[in-house]
Design a protein around this nucleic acid. Structure first.
Length: 418
RNA sequence: CCCCACGCGACUGUUACG
């Protein structure tokens, strides 16, 4: 466990093998040993290896227990593998292990990550039907399932059910519902719920830093930067100290609102508050500036980012290429794309899409065509966004016939036109 | 033998490709 927390996976495995080598009658790795190993794999961000250890454990005749299953269910969740999670839950039954609240929260969480919100509800109801009384955490996990699958009405219903059953929702409960509403662009409902939190008599329910950040994201989704600013100030007035995540969310919403200058100001304020701007901050700011047409400033921020020692990642490149595209700076966009390749940053569809869009916006439809070809050659399937960017270029270049051909082509690739 | 202790598990926010 200690080695796992210290991200020393290899050392964990060496230790496990050592224990196995010294195994004798009544001596050797037991459930707890294996559970600790599985937990260490999770700690190190290796859910697949966690599942391998589990297989090794059961094939070695060691009986898994409840802890084992919660960990392997979490592993399946991290891999977004709902099927596997359901299979593991069956295995738990086969071993005669009792499923408790932790087991259910992990199972529901795994189903959530796999997008299987209906299955999550099904298991939740099974638990209730079996006479179980899911606790707050299990409810919150179910809400996470709603959040991931963007089921805001279901999420609200879960909250109301909790209240009518006399179960005390906590901040996490409210924040998860708010996040669902934000994702579904229901800021109106979110604000109502926020008011409900403020009016709550429960000490466990009071808007916190996460509540405010969630609302900022909600504002971002619907382009309400003024409200976002108000909320941010209200938060500070209440003594909640803004963190990097909240500032990043604020920068994002300001960018979408066309307030590049204000976004830059937030960035400056962060520095004066000794806050460490992280990679997300830089990426968000670059995107914000790009959205506002401020590509020169965006390039400057990219430089600053490097100067302070951050490595641009693929979000950075997508943001900067798209910023340059908006500024009709194709050559620069192409150069930066090349740089991404040189630096070993994974080139994916979004990056090509931004590049194709940059070509198109600059009126270089034949370059756009060339990049789409390059994309295919790289083994990447063009997406709707790719075709939209390409069609935009053909439209600008008055290439009607070619546009029709491309349209037929995309239909043939079973791409759903918007 | 009993009691106790120790070791393993769960929930919320930030950068969406056109």
């Amino acid at each position: 466990t200690g080695l796992g927390r210290g991200r020393q996976m290899d050392a964990c495995f060496r230790l496990l093998r050592e224990v196995q080598a010294q195994a004798g009658p009544g001596r050797g790795p037991d459930v707890v040993t294996f559970n600790a190993m599985i937990g260490a794999c999770l700690e190190c961000g290796e859910p697949a290896r966690a599942l391998e250890v589990y297989s090794e454990m059961v094939s070695g005749g060691v009986h898994p227990n409840g802890h084992t299953f919660s960990s392997v269910l979490r592993s399946a969740g991290l891999m977004g593998d709902a099927k596997r999670a359901m299979g593991l839950f069956q295995e738990l039954r086969g071993w005669g292990v009792a499923a408790d609240e932790v087991t259910y929260s992990c199972l529901i969480r795994a189903l959530a990550e796999g997008g299987e919100w209906e299955a999550a509800f099904q298991h939740f109801q099974d638990l209730q039907a079996a006479g179980g009384r899911p606790n707050v955490v299990v409810h919150n996990s179910l809400l996470t399932a709603c959040e991931r699958s963007e089921q805001w009405a279901a999420a609200l219903q879960v909250l109301r059910d909790m209240q009518s059953q006399g179960m005390e929702p906590n901040n996490i409960t409210y924040n998860t519902v708010l996040s669902t509403l934000a994702k579904c662009k229901r800021l109106d409902v979110a604000v109502e719920l926020f008011e409900e939190m403020k009016a709550s008599r429960s000490p466990a329910v009071q808007p916190d830093l996460i509540t405010y950040s969630t609302l900022l994201t909600g504002c971002d989704r619907v382009g309400r930067w003024e409200l976002a600013m108000e909320l941010f100030q209200e938060m500070q007035k209440k003594g909640e100290e803004a963190d990097v995540i909240a500032c990043n969310a604020l920068i994002s919403v300001l960018g979408k609102g066309g307030k590049g200058g204000m976004a830059l100001q937030v960035f400056e304020d962060m520095k004066s508050m000794w806050m460490i701007a992280d990679v997300v901050t830089y990426n968000t700011l670059i995107r914000a500036l790009g959205t506002c047409g401020m590509w020169e400033e965006a390039l400057q921020i990219l430089q600053d980012m490097r100067d302070v020692g951050w490595r641009p990642d693929h979000y950075t490149y997508v943001a900067i290429i798209s910023a340059l595209g908006r500024g009709r700076q194709v050559e620069r966009a192409l150069a930066l794309f090349q740089q991404a390749v040189t630096e070993g940053v994974a080139v994916d569809a979004p990056m090509y899409n931004a590049l194709v869009a940059a070509c198109s916006r600059s009126g270089q439809w034949h370059w756009a065509e060339r990049e789409v070809e390059a994309m295919k050659k790289a083994g990447l399937q063009p997406t709707v966004a790719t075709y939209m960017a390409l069609l935009d270029g053909l439209r600008r270049g008055a290439q009607g016939d070619r546009a029709l051909e491309v349209f037929v082509e995309l239909r043939g690739e079973a791409i759903q036109p918007s």
